[in-house]
Simulated scan of single mutants.
Amino acid sequence: MRRQLTCVAALAISLGASPTSADPFSDLAALPTFYTDAAMKTMKPMARFKKAWFAMPKHDRVTMTKACNDPAMSKPHAAFCADVLALGGAN
């Protein structure tokens, strides 16, 4: 019984804890401002991208820059990260 209780407690803790490696691309409501379409397939031109980038709070820009520097995170968002890194990750 004690073993079952320990397993249930460990499962509850693991499900309740937010992972530190959460995808920051899904957490930001501002992400659609970088795309021209609702499906988020076509990036805005660099001038408009840059304007949207600097309109974001600094904390969000830092988070996105870190994510774009991680190959595993940036691969699904290659076009977005290419523009972020082209800006030099400017904060």
Rank of each mutant, 00 (worst) to 15 (best):
T65Q: 02
A47T: 11
C7H: 09
A82P: 04
D23S: 13
P19M: 12
A67L: 10
M40V: 01
L85G: 00
M43P: 05
L5H: 09
L11M: 09
A9F: 05
A30T: 07
F80A: 01
A38V: 02
L5S: 09
D60I: 04
T20F: 13
R2Q: 15
V84A: 05
T33W: 03
A38K: 04
L28S: 10
P57V: 10
A29K: 11
T33L: 04
R2Y: 09
R48H: 13
A55M: 09
A86E: 08
L15D: 01
F54M: 15
D27H: 15
K41A: 06
R2I: 13
W53T: 13
L85S: 07
A79W: 03
A90S: 07
L5T: 07
F34K: 06
L15F: 04
K75S: 08
A67G: 11
M40D: 00
A39W: 02
A29V: 09
M1R: 15
F34E: 01
S26V: 13
T33F: 03
K50T: 15
T63F: 08
A55F: 09
F25N: 05
M64L: 15
L85R: 10
A29W: 05
P71N: 03
K44W: 04
A55P: 09
C7P: 02
V62W: 12
D70Y: 02
A17S: 00
K58L: 14
D37Q: 06
F34W: 01
T36M: 08
A67E: 10
S18A: 08
G16S: 00
C7Y: 10
G88S: 03
K44L: 13
A79P: 05
P71I: 01
Q4T: 10
F34I: 03
T33M: 02
Q4G: 07
R48L: 13
M1Y: 14
M40R: 03
C7Q: 12
A39G: 01
K58Y: 10
P24R: 11
R2L: 15
D27V: 14
A86P: 08
A10R: 03
I13D: 00
A30V: 08
L85A: 03
F80N: 02
F49E: 15
P32V: 11
A52Y: 12
P45Q: 04
L87G: 14
A30H: 05
P45A: 07
L87E: 12
A38Y: 00
D70V: 07
A72G: 01
T63P: 06
C7S: 10
L15I: 02
H77G: 05
T33Y: 05
K41P: 02
P76I: 04
N69A: 15
V8R: 11
N69T: 14
A90M: 06
G16V: 00
F25E: 03
A47M: 04
A29Q: 10
T42S: 11
T42G: 02
M64C: 15
M56H: 12
A79M: 09
A39P: 03
M43F: 06
M73V: 05
L31T: 01
